[in-house]
Simulated scan of single mutants.
Amino acid sequence: MFTDADAAALYDLLNPWDPEQWPGDGFYDRLVAAAPSVLDVGCGTGSMLCRAREAGHRGRLAGIDPNRAALARARRRPDIEWAEGTAADVGRYAEFDLVTMASHAFQCLVTDDEVRASLAAIRTALRPGGRFAFETRHPQARAWEEWHPSQASDVTDASGRTLRVQHATESVVGDVVTVAETTTEPDGTVLRVERTRLRFLDVPALDAFLTETGFEIEARYGDWEGGPVTGTSREIITVARRT
């Protein structure tokens, strides 16, 4: 047996939010701490916002995600607003100072229509002058070539069960990559296979979508230390402002 709840708990084990260890987590932690109100789109199990509250954030914090099992874990923290939905649904919110899409969640917006609808809704959720912070993997780094079963991760869950998680790229069609995440027991017994489609936009395409939907680029980085985007950058980290 391997349930959606098991998968959500496993995600937290494999991806703990730790700004001391991971520079990307630290980047978002600083932005969230400085913003009076924050909406995290694709919040998953809510680790980023929960840490902000634990660190003393007293403003409005809200998270939205389509994964019910992940939200069930997030809702263990009742002093944060949690909602089920996608980026295109956030237009019902209003006047946040900061909207975030961390952990490459933006790449789950695959079609042009999804990107436009999501950016328009995020703009609506921001107060005038509010900021939208997110990152995507730079296509020039070809990260999908590194997603191979040989790079499997083993982890022991809360019940003491050892699990193995591996990723494999199944297809690359234009700028859309399909990757399969397979969870197995150590003997190879398959417990779960989850496929995800990810879009790899380059800087010109990304900026065209942002400009079209009413954003201007406030800051752009190629790494989590604040360096510029270069010919070897693995990330496109963007802070855009609602115009």
Results as ranks from 00 to 15, higher is better:
L10G: 07
R58I: 15
L201P: 02
R137L: 10
E225P: 00
A8F: 00
F27E: 06
T111P: 06
E212I: 04
A87L: 11
P78Q: 12
S159E: 15
A152E: 05
F2T: 08
G160D: 07
L49Y: 11
F215G: 12
T169P: 08
F96P: 14
R234A: 15
V41Y: 07
E225Q: 12
V41M: 10
G130N: 08
V155R: 04
F2D: 04
C50L: 04
V99S: 13
A158K: 08
P66D: 04
E216K: 03
E194D: 14
G222W: 03
V165I: 07
G222I: 06
F132R: 05
W224S: 08
V115K: 07
A69P: 09
L206K: 05
Q107V: 00
T230P: 13
F27W: 14
H104D: 14
L14T: 00
G26D: 12
E235F: 02
T183D: 05
E218D: 15
E81G: 07
E194S: 15
T230K: 14
R58A: 15
L13V: 06
F134K: 03
T184H: 01
T45W: 03
R241E: 09
G130D: 11
I64N: 01
S37H: 01
G63P: 01
R197M: 01
F2M: 07
H167S: 15
A55I: 09
T45M: 02
E84I: 06
R68P: 13
I64K: 01
E216C: 04
T196A: 13
A70E: 07
T238I: 12
Q140E: 11
R58M: 11
A105W: 00
M101V: 13
H167P: 10
P228H: 04
L198V: 06
L39Y: 10
T156K: 08
A83L: 13
D29T: 02
P66E: 09
G91N: 14
C50A: 12
V179G: 06
A152V: 05
I80R: 00
R92L: 03
G46I: 07
I217C: 06
R131K: 14
P66N: 02
G188H: 09
A143D: 13
L98W: 14
G63H: 03
T211L: 06
E185M: 12
A33I: 07
D65W: 04
R30Q: 14
D207W: 00
T243E: 13
G227A: 09
D175G: 05
L201K: 00
L109Q: 10
R77Q: 14
A105D: 00
Y93T: 07
L10W: 00
F132M: 11
R76T: 13
E170N: 08
L31S: 11
G214K: 12
H148P: 00
L14V: 03
L14N: 08
R195Y: 04
G226S: 05
